[in-house]
Design a protein around this nucleic acid. Structure first.
Lengths: 234, 234
DNA sequence: GAGTGGTCTAGACCACGGT
DNA sequence: CCGTGGTCTAGACCACTCA
């Protein structure tokens, strides 16, 4: 049984207002009463109403403008929190045993596209790691990773036998920001062999590029074994 | 030039604390000073510090527990706001002209998997629409949609000549929640023909299932033409 | 110019959860 | 138990933006 939320908490008021919007009492694009009016109606302080409305605005249910008041969004925008998948967590949360295996590791000059992404001076080498993420020993995802040694020189000596390249980097460069691209691509020969599928099979693919304070850190391509899905609520 | 944020606003304090975490002053998993201490340090009220920390918690940078205090997240969780793509917006924001075309429309009993998703009583028919989303007249995405007529009977008479099924539904059932799955799949013959690619080509695919107040509304499969990517910052 | 949201404050009480 | 975060309040001033 769900515990009812008190009427005069910011959560209670938020849900009450949400219900009134959903019920159609205030229609799409329509202006709803001001904070002062709502505070009086609900018998609470304006601060509390403000918090409720700010949350609804963040969720995309209403739009707020000074002087313009608060309006129901004309076209509701669905949005969701998307958590970047961490391999180990992902596998273990499904009740499987996680492991990973380095397929190859070297230092060399990356192809043009990667040099550009990593903003590498020409002919500067970078670390390259190919690895396989496994669930209960079965291939789960294939990872190609380039690491900018200009930004993270210590990566050359990283011991990747017990933690993945990602885990090592997270410990050494914890707060990086990044850009993510999701796409579908056809398995090449190597991917097909390592992921146990056929050449040309459709693979869900994620590219990531991360920075720490204006310096590029690493560029990753993750190809997931067939059947992989990302799921989230909206 | 970016306007500096005042030191005693919740934004300013949030960024100050973020900087101290990034700088390594407080390490991963470490407990940071309490709200009262920070309020004193920054010369503001506890309320303001509270708001700054709540925001950082929401972003996933810190974890907060009563009595336990506030800690830097042991493993930083990257997360992003992901906006559900609206076809028209998506196409028009790239400077193309959006159009769409109904390929087929009928009412019939859906296959088992869809009946289950839509929680349809056996043998109840549903509306089925196949349509193509175009950018500058070129195929962009192929949509297969089932609509639960038990929940939205008016859909039978919907005029889809000027708006897409999605746009019609958004106007009539604006505040639905949903579940999204992203995957990669191989183009079948029809998809290949309509999207102008080859059979077996990898297609980025999005499945959506939406509800309004415990009633299922619609189940959608969107297959994007090759080359399509979703991009977002983290 | 004036109305509306954005934010800060100081104080208060509550609820959770480690010790 | 009792320290910490969670929240509410009443009042105040500010900043944007519409008319």
């Amino acid at each position: 049984m769900t515990r009812a939320v008190k009427r005069t908490t910011h959560q209670g008021i938020r849900e009450a207002i949400r219900a009134r919007i959903i019920s159609g009492e205030w229609k799409l694009g329509e202006r709803i009463p001001g904070e002062v009016a709502l505070a009086e109606e609900y018998g609470c302080s304006r601060t509390t109403v403000n918090r409720a409305l700010q949350t609804l605005a963040q969720e995309g249910m209403v739009e707020r403008k000074r002087k313009g008041g608060t309006r129901v969004r004309p076209l509701p925008t669905s949005q969701a929190q998307f958590r970047i998948p961490i391999m180990r967590e992902q596998v273990e949360s499904r009740g499987h045993r996680y492991s990973h295996r380095i397929e190859s590791r070297e230092v060399r000059v990356p192809p043009m596209a990667i040099r550009k992404q990593l903003e590498l001076p020409d002919n500067d080498p970078a670390a390259y790691v190919e690895s396989l993420h496994l669930a209960d020993g079965k291939p789960f995802a294939f990872e190609k990773r380039w690491v900018n040694l200009g930004s993270v020189p210590a990566f050359s000596d990283a011991d990747l036998s017990h933690e993945s390249a990602n885990e090592w980097l997270v410990r050494h460069v914890p707060f990086s920001r990044g850009e993510v691209r999701l796409s579908a691509s056809a398995a090449n020969a190597k991917q097909a062999r390592l992921l146990g599928t056929d050449k040309g099979a459709p693979l869900f693919t994620m590219h990531r590029l991360t920075w720490f304070e204006e310096r590029t850190i690493t560029a990753i391509e993750l190809s997931f074994a067939p059947g992989y899905e990302i799921t989230f609520g909206v």
